[in-house]
Simulated scan of single mutants.
Amino acid sequence: MTKLRATRRALLALAAALPAPALAQAFPDRPIRFVIPWPPGGTNDIVGRLVSDGMAARLGQPIVIENRGGAGGALGAEVVAKATPDGYTMLLGGSGSLTINQLVRRRLPYDPATAFAPIGMIGSGANVIVVHPSVRATNLRELQAIARTASPPLNYASPGVGSTGHAAGALITQVLGVEMEHVPYRGTGPAMNDVVAGRIQVFTNALAPMQPQIAAGNVRPLAIAGTRRNAAIPDLPTTGEAGFPDIQAATWYALLATGGTPPDRVARLHAALGATIADPEIRRKLEDGGIDVEPSESPAAFAAFVRGDHERWAPVVRRAGVSIE
């Protein structure tokens, strides 16, 4: 026993002698839980898995993905908001689950102002506006004309109430001055299935899950809702080129930890994220999926971006009159 106590004292003395940075490197020393608040198969899932693989290699610990879809991302966000604030639980946040959801839901099971510790941005992708081939529109002007006379009204899908696709659809109806019926789904995959089947006429979403269906001719792209064309689909005009510059809708992706997570652990995760998306192969895969890689300079810079995004979408949601009790 005497030798055991002596060994423990020696180890404690060694730990005490180590500088603080050396101690900080002990994080993480076990697997990290990564909550994606959407079902498998959509862009969130694709982006999340790419980034988690890269971060796991750089952190030296497995990152275990948990798809927790529902309530426009609020169910998954709640899991992270209520986790122990130790850096071992992360959220793949985005414009829908963080910005739009907070604007349309009057009650959330967490306080958005304090529930999360921003880590950093991954990137964003302007949404693509597509129609089923049965809609005889090849551009937004033609869609506007068809929608004005359609009876019953055209419908548009979204990955869920409170998603970016929901807000983007509302924005399109406002700018075009038309009526369309919103049909919410539980994720991008189910929505895309019904668009391809012809049960839905219009869909606005990130490019990645659209690409195979566009290539197969199952849906027709009309425009990309950004300020510049996308390298993955260079012939598709922007909404500005189509005559509707006010239709701007990008889906962004980012990482957050539980509110109250120690700043040194947030900084460690931010550094691992930055190194991951700077990796040429990972960056190429993200860009091939229509994502513009946009690393945050710091967690604070990302927090400022989120505040600005909230201010931009608030009037759109208010004019659309969208709210959920």
Rank of each mutant, 00 (worst) to 15 (best):
T7A: 14
T7H: 14
A13D: 15
A13E: 13
L14W: 12
P21Q: 09
A22G: 04
L23V: 08
A24Y: 08
F27G: 06
P28S: 09
P31A: 03
V35K: 00
P39I: 01
P40D: 07
P40Q: 08
P40S: 04
D45R: 02
I46C: 11
I46D: 13
D53H: 12
A57F: 02
L59M: 06
R68I: 14
G69E: 12
A74L: 07
A74Y: 00
G76L: 02
A77F: 01
A77G: 15
A81G: 03
T84I: 12
G94W: 01
T99S: 11
N101I: 09
V104N: 09
V104S: 08
R105H: 10
R107Q: 14
P109N: 13
D111C: 02
P112H: 12
A113Q: 12
P118V: 05
I119E: 06
G120F: 02
G120A: 05
G125M: 01
N127P: 08
I129A: 10
I129Q: 03
T138W: 07
L143A: 01
I146Y: 02
A147G: 06
R148I: 03
R148N: 09
A150R: 09
S151L: 12
S151H: 14
N155F: 06
A157S: 15
P159W: 00
H166F: 01
H166Y: 02
A167F: 01
Q174A: 12
L176G: 05
E181P: 09
P184Y: 04
Y185V: 05
Y185N: 09
T188P: 10
V195S: 06
G198C: 05
R199Y: 11
I200V: 15
V202M: 10
T204W: 03
N205V: 15
A208H: 13
Q211W: 01
P212L: 00
Q213G: 08
I214M: 08
A216C: 06
V219P: 11
R220C: 06
P221Y: 02
L222C: 03
A223N: 07
G226Y: 00
T227S: 15
R228N: 12
G240D: 12
E241Q: 11
G243I: 04
I247E: 06
W252A: 12
Y253G: 10
A254C: 08
L256W: 13
L256T: 11
A257L: 05
G259F: 00
P262F: 00
D264I: 02
D264Y: 10
A267G: 03
L269R: 04
A272G: 00
L273Y: 02
G274L: 01
A275E: 15
K285V: 10
I291D: 08
I291L: 14
V293R: 09
E294A: 13
P295L: 03
S296I: 02
A300S: 12
A300H: 08
F302C: 11
R307Q: 14
G308Q: 15
H310L: 15
E311Y: 04
W313F: 14
W313I: 10
W313D: 07
P315A: 06
V316N: 08
G321L: 10
S323N: 11
I324Q: 12
E325V: 11
